[in-house]
Design a protein around this nucleic acid. Structure first.
Lengths: 189, 189
DNA sequence: AGTAATTGACCGAACGTTCAGTCAAAATTA
DNA sequence: TAATTTTGACTGAACGTTCGGTCAATTACT
């Protein structure tokens, strides 16, 4: 029962934060939509920021597990790259609201600060993995390649989150993988 | 005199909106930093949203002029692509705060709505130009290539805006251009 | 030139509203 | 009955916006 209410608050808050933004969502609104009272919210979470932190903690852990698992056991580095891209986008597709929230938070310095420690580690880990990958692929400049792949992935995610399901994210993923693994350019005739 | 106050308000508001976010910046704060009264703000601008709109209008016009000018007179399409990338990044570097503001606004649906019409045209125009470019380059799939280039550019800009001047934006630009124009992959050994 | 009338840039106290957070009371459970 | 959970009216701070009023400078008049 207690679990149910807490879960309900988290789910509802994520939905509202993602669609309306953190600042534009009031505690009253969350409580109303979650069918609980405003006061009860404060039994489970100390503050609005603590609620946000709980949401992000959960999502960061989920994401960490998934990507970690996805990149194990691929001996061929090109397959690793392929899986890194595909699994990341799959995660974004399956956790659309969470990513939308993160994206909207990315430039709200004050709020971000209270949550940055949770995300910092994940970000570092991703860059390291990327450099490692391109080193294995004998890229002349692994860091640059990793940065570029990261930027392209973030750009695609940004467009996907902004556009919604009409965005051809799967085709973009395929195109991205080809660009980074095909010896011949696929952009010139 | 009138010009001075209005300009001062615009400059100060841009600075604060970009660094603290639109919602987190109060009119009082803008007035204080611009050394004018709160009331005077409302002589020049009807509302906080109107002030934002004025800022964006200015930025959109500037950007439009620059990119339009930059892409004229390059007969070789590869040079056009090169200039599109370089000039865009140059514009972002020179108008860092505008872009930071735009980026932070990109996911605040309610505020964005009041300003979206200004940005919609520019976005469409950019996509069209990209497709046109890759058609000239005889790309097998111009739209996909244009989307990917656009995503990569947005990703790089995102990282640059988020990281600041320590981000190697010039190197990334070079790497991006090579990736899209070199027949051989630069990411594999 | 000197004086009076008019302007509008400018101020900041005050208003209504919103919202995160509190707490005494009511409802539920044990 | 006693303890625990849940409620929602309430508080105070912060916000965007309004508005009556001031005053230096410009214009009109004598």
């Amino acid at each position: 029962m207690r679990e149910r209410s807490e879960e309900k608050i988290l789910t509802t808050a994520l939905e509202l934060f993602a669609t309306k933004g953190y600042k534009n969502t009031s505690i009253s609104e969350i409580a109303k939509k979650a069918d609980i009272s405003k006061g009860l919210m404060y039994n489970y979470f100390d503050s609005k920021q603590a609620l946000l932190r709980a949401i992000i903690t959960k999502a960061v852990n989920d994401g960490h597990d998934l990507v970690k698992h996805a990149m194990e056991d691929y001996s061929a580095p090109i397959l690793e790259l392929e899986h890194l891209v595909l699994d990341t986008f799959e995660h974004v597709k399956n956790n659309f609201q969470y990513w939308k929230l993160l994206t909207s938070l990315a430039h709200q310095q004050d709020i971000l600060a209270s949550v940055q420690d949770l995300m910092e580690e994940q970000k570092k880990w991703g860059i390291e993995k990327g450099i490692e990958l391109f080193t294995k692929l004998k890229s002349p400049n692994p860091m640059q390649s990793a940065f570029l792949l990261g930027a392209a992935m973030d750009g695609i995610m940004l467009h996907y989150i902004h556009t919604g399901d009409e965005y051809p994210i799967d085709a973009m993923a395929k195109s991205l993988i080809e660009t980074f693994t095909h010896p011949d350019s696929i952009h010139l005739g």
